[in-house]
Amino acid sequence: MHADTVQIAMGRGSLKQKIDLYFANLGLGLNPYGLRKARMREIIHLEMKSDDQLARMGLSRDEILPHVFRDLLTA
C-alpha cells in the first residue's frame, strides 16, 4: 500500500475532518455526522483505491466526496 494513494492512513479522525470541511466549504449549515456515518464504508472503500483505479471509474481523489454525496447536492 502506497502512502500517496491512501489518504485515510493518517487515521479516521482526519477522514472525518475532511468530510466536515467538504460540507463547510459548500456552505451547508448542517452537521454531517449522520450522513458521514451512513456513507463512511463507501468513502473508505474509494479512498483505499489507487489513483489509477479511481481514474478507471472516472473519478479523481478530490471527487470522492462529491461522488458519494451526489444525491444530496443535485439541483
Rank of each mutant, 00 (worst) to 15 (best):
R56A: 08
L46E: 02
T74A: 12
R61I: 08
I43C: 03
L65W: 00
R41A: 14
M1I: 11
E42Y: 09
L72P: 02
D51A: 07
R70E: 12
G34N: 14
E47S: 08
R41Y: 07
L26G: 00
V68L: 02
R12M: 09
K16L: 11
K16W: 08
V68F: 03
F69A: 02
H67V: 04
M1P: 03
R39Q: 08
R70Y: 06
S60I: 11
Q7I: 15
Q53V: 13
L28H: 01
R61Q: 11
A9M: 09
D20L: 08
E42V: 09
D20Y: 11
R39F: 06
H67I: 04
H45M: 14
N25Y: 06
G27T: 01
A24T: 06
A9K: 08
G11C: 00
D4L: 14
E63R: 09
H45I: 11
F69C: 04
E42H: 07
I44S: 04
D4S: 13
K37M: 11
K16A: 05
K37R: 14
G34D: 10
N25D: 10
L26Q: 06
M48T: 15
I43V: 08
I44N: 03
V6S: 07
M10H: 11
A9F: 08
L72S: 02
D51W: 07
R36K: 14
D51C: 06
L72A: 01
E63C: 09
G34Q: 14
V6L: 12
L35K: 07
L73F: 06
D4Q: 15
L21T: 15
H45K: 15
R41Q: 13
H2Q: 10
L15M: 13
G29F: 07
T5E: 13
L73C: 05
L54P: 00
L35C: 07
A24N: 06
G58C: 02
R70M: 09
G27D: 00
D52G: 07
I43L: 03
L46Q: 05
L28R: 01
S14W: 06
A38L: 13
D4I: 12
M1S: 14
L21R: 15
K18G: 03
V6W: 10
L65C: 05
M1A: 12
H2T: 11
A55S: 08
L65T: 01
N31E: 08
F69Y: 04
R41I: 12
L46V: 06
I19R: 02
S50I: 05
D51P: 08
D71A: 13
R41W: 08
F23N: 01
M48Y: 14
M10Q: 09
A9R: 10
M48S: 15
N25H: 07
D4H: 10
R41S: 13
E42W: 02
I64M: 03
A3I: 14
Q17D: 09
K49T: 06
A75E: 13
A24K: 06
P32T: 05
D20Q: 11
L54W: 04
G58A: 02
M48V: 15
L65Y: 03
D52P: 02
M57C: 05
H2W: 07
M10V: 13
G11A: 00
I43D: 00
H45A: 15
L65H: 04
L73R: 02
I19H: 00
Y33M: 09
D20R: 09
A3T: 13
I43W: 00
